[in-house]
Amino acid sequence: MRGMGEYQLEVNGDTQPVSAPDHWTLLEVLRYRLGLTGSKQGCDKGDCGACTVLVDGKPVLACLTLARASEGRAITTIEGLMPAHLRAGGTGADPLQQAFDRCGALQCGFCQPGMILSARALLDRCPQPSREDMRDALSGNLCRCTGYTQIFEAIESAVAEKLQLQPKLRSWEAQRAAKESTR
């Protein structure tokens, strides 16, 4: 049997003791030791991005990261966003989470914890990304349901809300508007 490790991880602002086999990944420890099942496992080999978490603010694939290697670093999982937003005086979920909800970007939702964290990291470094910036930043997060369009729209909606911009009409809204104007 391989060895067991005892160590501490800082997850969503709290330092937590962990006892797990040495070969366990960060994803396994988060899901099966700490009960933080929001981070998903879609492939366990670095292909899908469903396991994305933020380590010191940067997106990292938890299925390819040994848990021990994250000692002493600040880990943020999807469960951490809403409490952080509340602590900062906000209401409800993180504005980005709310935008994903509002814009229909969540179909099965399985890719979305990873997707939202990648998008969060993008917005933190680039407050008004173009579609090309989004395509780039999310290219490690596969979504099988949406075709990505509504994910981009959600990010744009969050940006528009924050910067008080007029959100772009979606294709079916523009179609409706055109119909109504000819009526």
């Binding site: 981070s39 999807i78 469960e79 809403m82 979920a93 994903f100 909800d101 969540l106 939702g109």
Partner: peptide, 12 residues
Amino acid sequence: AKVDGLAKATGA
């Protein structure tokens, strides 16, 4: 929005 959207967005 969907009835389960926020649950999915927050990992719940």
